[in-house]
Design a binder for these strands. Sequence first.
DNA 1: CACCAAACTGGAAGCGTTTGCAGGCGAGGC
DNA 2: GCCTCGCCTGCAAACGCTTCCAGTTTGGTG
Lengths: 337, 337
Amino acid sequence: MAGIKDVAERAGLSVATVSRALSGRGHVSPKSRARAQAAAADLGFVPSYQASSLASGRNYNIGLVVPSVHRWYFASVVEGVSAALLDAGYDLTLYNITERSARRQSVLNDFLLRKRVDAVIAVALALTESEIAQMLAIHRPIVGIGGPLPGASTIRIDDHGLAEAAVNHLIRLGHTRIAHLTGDSTYEQDFKIPRTRLAGYEKAMLAAGLSVRPEWTVTADFTVQGAYAAARSLLGGVTERPTAVFAASDEMAIGTILAARDFGLRVPDDLSVIGMDGHELGALFGLTTIDQDPRGQGALAVRLLLDGLDGGSDQEVLDTEYPTKFVIRSSTAVPPA
Amino acid sequence: MAGIKDVAERAGLSVATVSRALSGRGHVSPKSRARAQAAAADLGFVPSYQASSLASGRNYNIGLVVPSVHRWYFASVVEGVSAALLDAGYDLTLYNITERSARRQSVLNDFLLRKRVDAVIAVALALTESEIAQMLAIHRPIVGIGGPLPGASTIRIDDHGLAEAAVNHLIRLGHTRIAHLTGDSTYEQDFKIPRTRLAGYEKAMLAAGLSVRPEWTVTADFTVQGAYAAARSLLGGVTERPTAVFAASDEMAIGTILAARDFGLRVPDDLSVIGMDGHELGALFGLTTIDQDPRGQGALAVRLLLDGLDGGSDQEVLDTEYPTKFVIRSSTAVPPA
DNA sequence: CACCAAACTGGAAGCGTTTGCAGGCGAGGC
DNA sequence: GCCTCGCCTGCAAACGCTTCCAGTTTGGTG
């Protein structure tokens, strides 16, 4: 394995000059630069990451913490982050923290604090203020996506307002019996979004003078199959059936549509369904939804962090509301007569 | 930021002893170890990764290369790998190489060869022999999952035989008009699995004396929506309709079922569908499939690599056939009369 | 009780870069 | 023609650990 020394020798230059030539930092004459590059290419030289990190303090590596990689939203964020980082020449270290507690703590202590990453993107993860302070203390900026991070920059959508908008869409169509399929409490501590969307639902209902019936707020685990089961009990239950369902995610909306079909209910004739996400499968089901482009959110997070890292000084905390698109398809219509 | 020196000072020990005490390598008296650990805890000491990597040559970091993070199969592998690595105290560096060519090359050169990772797991990625040789030359073991890697260890399932088994299951039920939904050629160069499964399908058909009709082999892009579109043309076309479909993945099988429903075809009464994967959604659709447990494959890959890394010497190349489970549900039955 | 091996410890030499510093050199201004 | 300035270059000192080596202690054995 050729080291920078070998390159220097072959190029007839000093190690320092080669380093500057290859990294682009500092002044190097064009001739020397060419010689260094040629020698490096000849030897197949690749600088050692740990050595260069150690000496320079930069890692070119950012950490991404997600609670799942299966759910569409998270996979999309990962994709967006990954692409943006590859372009920038950064590595992506993925921490998929499925369970709570133990695992989570160890990731924080053993991994994130180990100076291995230059910055952290945390998705739907509620870090405590002290945890955030810890990270910032060692000059590791954090950006949170879809989760409130007190003291750190965040990217989020207007969950409350969008939930309201979704419900209002149904109300405007004439629906009064509107149910809500909300997210699981597995993530309760970390993931406040379900509750925020639920609040938006309730606000819109009350604002329109509609009653929020507790049996019409059902909980599922954010997956298609979970929502399917929940929707079955909602739609097949003994209680009066709603004419519309606002699901807190597209996957749950799809589960609802599948359950409705199984009961012989036509969407949207017998039941309107609206989701939230922008899932690719939405088109297939004609799903009306709010597209939040998580890929773009991931890419934006990277841009924010990288700008900050280059900028040098500690960046300010900023809370970005990511724009969304209301996508009206065929799963919502006026209620049955 | 406290360094090991500070810890040594506080513990009244030498740097060397502290290093040994905390890493567990070498002999240290219980008393010294306790003192070192206490001092480290007091100071909130976390060893610098780059420094320890540089000095020791170990990275505790492995690279995972996947062509997608959205498709269920890949997400599952990522999950399995991630969990296994977290347990082992390793970092996971994710390379999501969506496009071919340029990006792929740069990942290989700029990232994988940079000694940043101790080993590489490549999923459904066909590296050339010279690329593999390059990695092995710098002592970076590789394990391939679901893709042939000449000269490297691999974990795979018996795609050919399993495809045959799936088709034979349909044949035994009495089907003769069996179509095959195969994978896209986007991955053509890297991803040989679709062709292998196709070959298994053809072999089983011919062995049973059934004709392989070209219009009954349709291609989709491995997604639900892609398969849905393909299945629509297959089932709604002018040609004679098959009574059964063998889809090369569960996602494609689900797309097929959705398309069938749209045509008013009942599954399995009018159309039998069999998939391959073990997707969680399969249960919801009553999908008969072959469960290949990609999570387990990911975990196994990690175990293989870590055993090899600990073992020290260059490990031998071994090709592991991962066991699968044939899961019979309700999407397959005897053909309509 | 002497001796030897094994356990333990500390000093110091790396690991392979980056970068501060200072010297050298050519060009431009007076 | 001389001085200054700025670009270029090389030396050497970090960066923060690990580990070899050698020295010291401990425990066990003949």
